[in-house]
Design a protein around this nucleic acid. Structure first.
Length: 212
DNA sequence: CTCCTGTTGT
DNA sequence: ACAACAGGAG
């Protein structure tokens, strides 16, 4: 796939932006295990980060491994998650996962065989926990790339995944920071309504900013 | 691809 | 009560 002309400029600027602006969350600490990252991403697919942050430390403290999940009473699991608009479905799925596997696998394909685990959770887990070079494509990312690159951002899901993969920085040491930055850029600057054009490094060439 | 599910905002 | 949202499932 041929990337748009502005792609490398965007990539470089985003990496720079990420070093200064990526947010700190408990699950983003360097030493988090694959399990700890997985749990966070599993909750984050359905819940605002600040809500997850409220219950996450207690959750991983009480359930530090899949084994602990497997042994836990499902109602206790729910009680930790439940406090603020949380869901029982997630507790059930985690139990099911803990029963079906001893340790979380290290490939997206194997992760996606687990209940309620799709491309987002699988790739985010392996990228953020294991530093794998994998694309992360959620609604924020789609909005950012659609705006910045306009028609050059493909329509189909698989082409979009390819696009995201090619946007990743060459240096493996930068991939995690790039993906984190992309998510936060969508959440902080390139927001759904009232994007902060004045704070955006891409407004010179962004299709959305320049055309409307 | 379309449909489903649980959640959130009006 | 309703539609929109955001992932995953089929």
């Amino acid at each position: 796939m041929r990337l748009p002309k502005a792609a490398s400029a965007f990539r470089d600027s985003l990496l720079q932006w990420a070093t200064e602006n990526v947010r700190e969350y408990p699950w983003r600490e360097q030493e988090r295990s694959r399990y700890e990252v997985f749990v966070a991403e599993f909750f984050l697919t359905q819940t605002p980060a600040d809500n997850v942050a409220d219950v996450y430390p207690e959750f991983v403290d009480r359930y530090p491994s899949l084994e602990a999940i497997e042994e836990a009473d499902e109602e206790d699991l729910v009680s930790v998650i439940d406090p603020l608009g949380f869901q029982r479905m997630r507790a059930r799925a985690l139990k099911s996962i803990a029963r079906s596997v001893d340790d979380l696998p290290d490939t997206t394909g194997q992760l996606r065989e687990l209940e309620r685990v799709g491309p987002y959770v699988a790739n985010a887990t392996l990228c953020f926990a294991d530093r794998s070079k994998l694309p992360i494509l959620d609604r924020n990312v789609e909005r950012v790339y659609s705006r910045v690159f306009g028609d050059r951002f493909p329509d189909s899901r698989s082409d979009r995944e390819d696009f995201c993969t090619e946007m990743l920085p060459e240096d493996p040491a930068d991939v995690r920071r790039y993906n984190l930055g992309l998510l936060d850029f969508g959440a902080i600057v390139c927001t759904k309504e009232s994007p902060r054009f004045d704070d955006c490094f891409a407004s010179e060439y962004c299709v959305y900013a320049t055309s409307g």
